[in-house]
Design a protein around this nucleic acid. Structure first.
Lengths: 390, 390
DNA sequence: GATGTTTGTGCAGTAGCTGTACAAAGCTAC
DNA sequence: GTAGCTTTGTACAGCTACTGCACAAACATC
């Protein structure tokens, strides 16, 4: 049996997807290779300090009566990354290693919308979290705006009030000692859900999430993010869901994001005009009230759910998705009125029957961070040998 | 320099994309490998009868004064495929070899819409074209309906008047001696344009084409068709472009395909209700009149162009395309009113300025056939060794 | 402690490259 | 016509990443 791709890369990838711990027999089965090949591959990875092997056989696990398999673990000497997230009102950072576990998470409120100050706040937090990390492979940053894949340019960080900003260059300038990569937050959260969360195993995953202002979306197609030519693909915020709806700064009316983002939910609940720093708690309040059966809150949630379903129908038809994952507040909306969303998707999608596509809330509270880590870890997953020889 | 993938596959793929003829030095350059590796690879392919090498150096070509490079050609003994196309009123078939050149093209009118008769007519034509072909790798069939990637099931060949039909099984039953694969005609035409036509080099290609009834679309993303989980992706026919527009059998109103397919064009030109067999000539008539400057024909073309642009804007935004290729009549529409289409795309797309995305008419008169051949040739392109050892 | 099962390991062998050295084939200049 | 230059093809030794086989090790059951 030939191994489809490079063996080392496959071992590292599988170990990562299994959370950083797997039995040797399990890996052999997953690669579809012989035991001797696995011996060779694990020897290479051990020599390079990426993995450690536990021969004690702590847990039996087999129950078949045979010789227990060794456990393969990510070594302490393995490379690590720092993941960071920029949102409307906070910056967050944490360390993440192979296996996808967060540690040392730090969150700070973000004062103004000034580009220089924001870059500086991010840079400072990252430097702090990266301090003393022995084998730092790189830094991944999740940004609430479209991000050009070639260089991290942000053409329209509208919700931060910025015009086009060379965010990638600014971040690399601020952190010259690190390898910095940037990605759109929704794309990265989708990637994280696909690899470690509610999107595992999907062939075609559609992900949607809301922020205070704006709607993020992404598609993971056959295991890879659908980025488009420049990196601006999907951007579901401006799909038309209600021609008689609210005006949108983009020039059209009834754009999806106007109806379903946090401001849309608060407006539907009769709480328009809440100050930015109070949005988080107000949204939590409305969601809690709806969960308690309060009629006007529930009506607001259902209105968001209906529009969400309409937008999803278009996305599901175009992408022929077999899974939808809803992040953040949208996951909560779905939990409160699944039938309304399912019904919209079922009746408005071409070739999709009602309830045919599993719609599930996201499983990762820190999806954006984890996705940023995935991006920074990617070179290691793709070509462990090149990364480890350096 | 390591070669990214399997060397044999790369040589075959590049030779195919270069039309079946390339200089040895050219291939070495494209693979980025050493001359000795190329010697080894070409030796393997020659031994297996896939290629032949012309050492005479017919043309100088170099002009640098060095030793002229040998020409690598597809050998007569190389595998060939038969490509077939089913459309509303005809069946077509031809032979295609590595390099993508059609030969022995045969077209037949198709009488009724009966499934059994259609399968039989297709089978007969394919058998005829396949007769006497020495090394037939497989048969590819382009079908004007969504096609399930796993087995060729056609869930809704609406425009042929069929409900769900297991078309793949029926064709394989009819042609048990061949390896038959099926694909959606728009997908296959898009693939052909990407590999051999107006879509070459695009990172993210959006393709649209019209038939008498219905609109086909496809996306080629980073070199591969965007098929979705089941194979039903894109299906642009039911994107809403005019809420106050015509009713569509799908239940909605103002669906894109109602406005821009051949019936839409004829309706806009005041020629609704033309019989199916007269549509082709009537459409040609309208297009010719518009080209001559006849005002009502031109107005009809411009109406189609405007709706086309609106639909394209949505597709371009979602996919972040860097090229649009328009097949069939749509290519002609664009040639007659490029500004109207460009303007719609430029103003209605998020993050796309006017004229930023190149929109071009298709370059291949038989794109669907050629794409069907690409599909049938795929195993050879992916793994020449496996195919040739059998 | 014999038996059966599953697992890890050592070792010889192979496919698919890689790099180097050198010969071949053209052109130009003298 | 041949020396000199350039570019190209080829021979050959060597390496990496596996593959397969035979055998030993580690557990459970009887």
């Amino acid at each position: 049996m030939a191994v489809a791709q490079d063996g080392l890369s496959q071992v590292v990838r599988n170990l990562h997807l299994l959370g950083g711990s797997a039995s040797r027999a399990e890996l052999t089965e997953l690669l579809g290779c012989g035991r001797s090949v696995m011996g060779y591959l694990l020897g290479e990875l051990t020599d390079r300090g990426l993995i450690a092997i536990d021969r004690t056989g702590g847990q039996p696990a087999t129950t078949d009566g045979g010789r227990p398999s060794h456990r393969v673990l990510v070594a302490d000497t393995a490379p690590t990354v720092v993941a960071a997230q920029l949102s409307a009102d906070t910056v967050t950072a944490a360390r993440v290693g192979l296996g996808g576990h967060l540690s040392g998470r730090v969150e700070r409120p973000l004062a103004g919308g000034n580009v220089t100050d924001t870059v500086d706040a991010l840079g400072e937090l990252i430097t702090e979290v990266a301090d003393g990390v022995p084998n730092l492979l790189g830094v991944g940053v999740a940004v609430p705006s479209p991000v050009r894949r070639s260089d991290g340019y942000a053409p329209a960080a509208l919700h931060l009030g910025w015009p086009g900003v060379p965010l990638g260059d600014l971040m690399r300038e601020r952190l010259p000692e690190h390898t910095v990569s940037l990605g759109n937050d929704a794309n990265l959260a989708a990637l994280a859900e696909y690899r470690h969360g509610a999107g595992r195993g999907a062939a075609q995953l559609v992900y949607l999430t809301t922020a205070h202002v704006g709607l993020g979306g992404a598609v993971v197609s056959e295991g890879r993010l659908f980025l488009g030519a420049r990196g601006y693909a999907i951007e579901p915020g401006h799909i038309t869901v209600d021609v008689a709806g609210q005006r949108c700064p983009c020039g059209s009316t009834g754009c999806l994001e106007i109806e379903v983002d946090h401001r849309g939910l608060l407006r539907a609940a009769g709480r328009a005009g809440v100050a930015l720093e109070a949005v988080t708690s107000e949204v939590a309040d409305v969601m809690a009230a709806a969960a308690d059966g309060e009629p006007s809150a529930m009506a607001a949630v259902e209105r968001v759910g209906r529009h969400l379903g309409t937008g999803l129908a278009t996305l599901v038809t175009i992408t022929d998705a077999d899974r939808v994952v809803l992040g953040g507040t949208l996951g909560g909306v779905y939990r409160l009125c699944p039938d309304i969303v399912d019904d919209q998707v079922g009746t408005r999608s071409f070739l999709v029957g009602p309830g045919e596509i599993p719609i599930v809330p996201g499983a990762l509270p820190d999806g954006e961070l984890l996705g940023a880590a995935e991006m920074a870890l990617q070179p290691l997953l793709d070509n462990p040998k090149r990364v480890l020889s350096a």
